[in-house]
Design a protein around this nucleic acid. Structure first.
Length: 549
RNA sequence: GGCUCGUUGGUGAAGUGGUUUAACACGCCACCCUCUCAAGGUGGUAUUCAUGGGUUCGAAACCCAUACGAGUCACCA
């Protein structure tokens, strides 16, 4: 029997050849320098923030070079797949404006002419490629059982050799064709291994787009390319898919870096052009002084649903990830206020070679800035949307008092340097609850009076203000002048400088008076502009709240 | 254990041999601003770039060693 027939015996029923597949997928019509890249998750769960980071980078690079960003589903480990995994992945990325030019669009549909994009539908393609290797004596069947492999491993550990199926440990490597045929006909189970031509002592230079030049040993391990379930391993699928789909840049987590010897070897054995690789360092978390990879199980902020629940705008998350990707992004954004993130030129060279600590505080700061630049009505829509899922009580108030709510959100907003009160939608209620009678009346109140705490004096101030000074029609300036007048009248300094020079001449100052009004109305000593708050609350509410003191 | 990568402040980092007495941003602290807070303004916040050697007139940057950290070594991706 010759090798061609042997290949047929091992991987039966395959009619197409590599050449056939090459012809099926025409060369991509893209410009010089365009990046074709992909996100290739296994559908085992929702993406985490690290996946989002990676997809943001990939999509952005593809866009800025007029390239292609596609979604390929790596479901070759069928045990771990979850139900509707594909749709869930697509949806949660869509929330962050991560969109694909081609690839899977649901469990059953896809778009683009380089598919199928779901690996479990590509079995015969992988087999055709594996057959080619067998025919050319570059792959062979391995009959070793799990126990046998265990035995080899133990022996290697005992003699402190490198672990793996290679060299003299690769016992199935030199089986004769006759013997293979015999064992196959006996019904023995087998998998297909690569006959690695590499030598561990040979080094080669690899140039990563992010990590730069490094020296790596050749791969000499006869890795498995087709598993006993007939599906390919990651390494082999990567070769076949990224070749046929004409990926120019493989952008992925740096846990793959050590597989580079295998991957480049595979491409060379087929005489295929090796794609460029960019290995992204992971997002890290400080865990009692040591840094470790952000983990979905241990860290709530690692999961993308966290941002949804907290009401952190997805735009802010992306802005933060952009600054982590290229730290000059923030400065660029500051200097290019008229441009959007899409105009920013992301560079591999500026990406960190070691992982960055994930800084939630910084993210919230970015979020605060982002929200401060939105219009009051936009804030209203977004907060309302968020409450629909997470705070029905507040949702009803927002709907009932739409105009008023927008007015509240507009306090100190339309100015050159707007207030930055909210870092996320879930913050909003805590900041403005006292503006709604329903919430104020039922709240347990802790009045935060500061300097003036004497009940009688407080009452005097409130009554004097209401009967002699307050008028709902006053504009800001009039309102403030009246505050000054009242301060003078009651023996408090209306001029802060004056007060600082001669504090002993006064009972206090205008700030103390303002504090009394502020706290009586809101219970809080720190709020936005008091004039505007009073304007929105209205005379009736003001009276009612003063009466409570 | 083998292989590989990394180590600049509380954080993200800029920086690839000489206006660096280390940019910028977040955080923190102080002060300022005709109401508080926020914002804004001003200033402070690494005598020093993991440690030890070396190269050089000159090093955070180049070389070597050590320490520490990370990744990987599956019929998982």
């Amino acid at each position: 029997m010759d090798r061609k027939k042997l290949a047929d015996l091992l991987l039966p029923g395959i009619t197409k050849t590599i050449e056939d597949y090459e012809k099926m997928y025409p060369e991509r019509n893209i410009e010089e320098g365009a990046i074709v890249t992909r996100y290739a998750p296994s559908p085992t769960g929702l993406p985490h923030i690290g996946n989002l980071f990676q997809t943001f980078i990939s999509m952005h690079l593809a866009k800025q070079t007029s390239g292609i960003f596609y979604l390929r589903i790596e479901d070759t480990d069928q045990k771990r797949s979850i139900e509707n995994g594909i749709s869930k992945i697509i949806k949660s990325l869509n929330d962050f404006e991560i969109k694909f030019d081609e690839g899977a669009v649901s469990e059953v549909d896809e778009k683009g002419s380089y598919g199928p994009y779901i690996q479990s539908n590509r079995k015969e393609i992988y087999w055709a490629f594996a057959k080619y290797l067998i025919e050319n004596d570059m792959a062979y069947p391995c009959f070793c059982t799990e126990e046998k492999l265990d035995e080899i491993r133990q022996k290697q550990e005992k003699y402190k050799s490198r672990i793996g199926y290679y060299g003299r440990y690769a016992t199935c490597r030199n089986l004769s064709i006759d013997e293979i045929v015999k064992r196959v006909q006996n019904g023995e189970k087998y998998i297909i291994r690569l006959k690695s031509p590499g030598k561990f002592d040979n080094k080669f230079i690899f140039n990563d787009c992010i990590k730069g030049k490094m020296e790596l040993p050749e791969n000499d391990i006869d890795i498995i390319i087709i598993k006993s379930d007939g599906l390919p391993t990651y390494h082999f699928a990567h070769l076949v898919d990224d070749h046929l789909m004409q990926t120019t840049h493989v952008i992925r987590g740096d846990e793959w870096l050590s597989s580079i010897p295998i991957h480049t070897q595979l491409f060379r054995m087929f005489n295929f052009k090796v794609p460029k690789y960019a290995h992204i360092a992971p997002l890290l978390k400080d865990d009692n002084g040591t840094k470790r990879k952000l983990s979905k199980r241990k860290d709530p902020e690692a999961s993308v649903t966290y941002y949804h629940e907290q009401g952190i705008p997805t735009e802010a998350v992306i802005l933060y990830l952009a600054t982590v990707a290229n730290s000059n992004f923030e400065e660029w954004m500051d200097n290019n206020k008229d441009k959007t993130i899409d105009d920013f030129k992301l560079e591999f060279k500026k990406m960190s070679t070691s992982g960055a600590l994930f800084d939630l505080e910084k993210l919230l700061n970015i979020s605060r800035n982002y929200l401060s630049r939105l219009k009051a009505c936009e804030i209203y829509e977004r907060v309302l949307n968020w409450t629909k899922e997470f705070d029905l009580e507040f949702k009803e108030l927002l709907e009932k008092y739409k105009e008023k709510s927008i007015a509240i959100f507009n306090i100190e907003r339309e100015q050159a340097k707007p207030r930055k009160d909210y870092s996320c939608y879930s913050d909003v209620k805590n900041q403005v609850w006292y503006m709604y009678d329903e919430l104020f009346d039922t709240a347990e109140k802790h009045y935060d009076f500061q300097k003036i705490t004497d009940k009688q004096e407080i009452k005097t101030i409130l009554n004097t203000y209401l009967s002699n000074y307050y008028s709902p029609e006053d504009d800001n300036e009039t309102w403030f002048n009246k505050m000054k007048d009242m301060s003078d009248h009651l023996g408090y300094a209306s001029n802060m400088k004056e007060y600082k020079n001669n504090p002993e001449n006064y009972k206090g100052n205008i700030a103390d008076i303002s504090n009394v009004l502020r706290v009586a109305l809101t219970t809080k000593s720190m709020t936005p502009d008091l004039y505007q708050i009073m304007k929105i609350l209205g005379i009736d509410t003001i009276k009612k709240r003063f009466d409570l003191i």
